[in-house]
Amino acid sequence: MKKTETNTEMKDEVIEELTKGLDSLDQQAEIDVPNINWFENYVAEQKLTQRKRLIKDLCVFAIVALFVLSTVLFTLYQQPYIFLSIQTICIVFITFYTIFRYKKKVKSE
């Protein structure tokens, strides 16, 4: 019981010191808050950049999708055994990858 109390006191002491230190960081931080025009320009600029990126990503996606689809259709009708091999490899890969990611996530937590 006494040991638990001592531990709590020490923990409180650490937290107090941490708060003091973080307070000094907070107080010395020099913040130069830009004016409202700067923020408005920043928002407009970001929206434009994000729109351009979206269009670029959609184009890349469409081209890759067309390529994959044509390859799949070609192998399905011309060389079915290659089609089936690719499907099997993909299923095995996704299964192992999912298990690996899950284990890594659990371990890191």
Binding site: V14, E17, L18, K20, G21, L22, S24, L25, Q27, Q28
Partner: peptide
């Protein structure tokens, strides 16, 4: 003149 303590 702010305090950078050991905890930080």
């Amino acid at each position: 003149n702010e305090d950078w303590n050991d905890a930080l």
